[in-house]
Design a protein around this nucleic acid. Sequence first.
DNA 1: AAGAATGTTATGTA
DNA 2: CTACATAACATTCT
Length: 264
Amino acid sequence: MPEGHTIHRAARDQSKMLVGKLVDVSSPQGRFSEGAERLDGLKCIGIEAYGKHLLYLFGHHLALHIHLGLFGRFRTANIPAAMPRGEVRVRLRSPTHVVDINGPNTCEVLDAQTMAALLTRIGPDVLRPDADKERAWLRIHKSRAAFGQLLMDQKVMSGIGNIYRTELLWRARLHPLTPGNQISRAAFDAIWDDAVQLLQIGVESNAIITVGNVQKSRSRYGERVNIFGKTACPACKGDIEKFELLTRRVFVCQTCQATHQPHS
DNA sequence: AAGAATGTTATGTA
DNA sequence: CTACATAACATTCT
């Protein structure tokens, strides 16, 4: 069962042992998109995460840009490492460890310019202390679009995926179709703070956990969330409704999240 | 073993 | 310019 690979930032924390070391970037299946050889002989000097984007920083202002997308994975191992499993696009190899990146959506080498372009393209990352929260608030405050849509729009704010969207809205007792401009400042602040907390838990456990008192190792996937993929609301025992918002599944409890009444 | 899935971008239409 | 729809792309798991 794919678990929490939407938590791209966990990949950063778990591959930190590459930092400060010479890292060889190879492509076992020969399917690296472009320019891997530009990183030859360079040291990995840091790893940064912006929303769901990962940047392995190398010397000469170059970075390996990874986005795991819908089904990308990463795996770390000690050397000697086993043969790559599945579609490994890149294997990062330090003297002591390997990090395998499977099936990423994006896998490319960036220079200073293209890196800057990426950073201006994405909205404030809820997990970054330097995040410009006001920028997100302004976008939401003046938009008529559904808040459930804005919350997951990486240009508005970054880091939230489909499961966290559903879970955050349920925890806030807000209907996903409430227009952005009807969200109060207090409600926005509360959701932002809740997102920070939930994502931090996610990064630490490398799994999406939105309920209390659950340990990853002792639970099944379905026991770690409140309403995503469920049919009954854990709070009121009522029915959970499922619908599509911009081609993505959304779950909502009509009783608990009655803030907005959809009229269709 | 067909189909679904925790994501994003590019392109077309109004 | 917005906004929405559609397609394309990435792979693994049931």
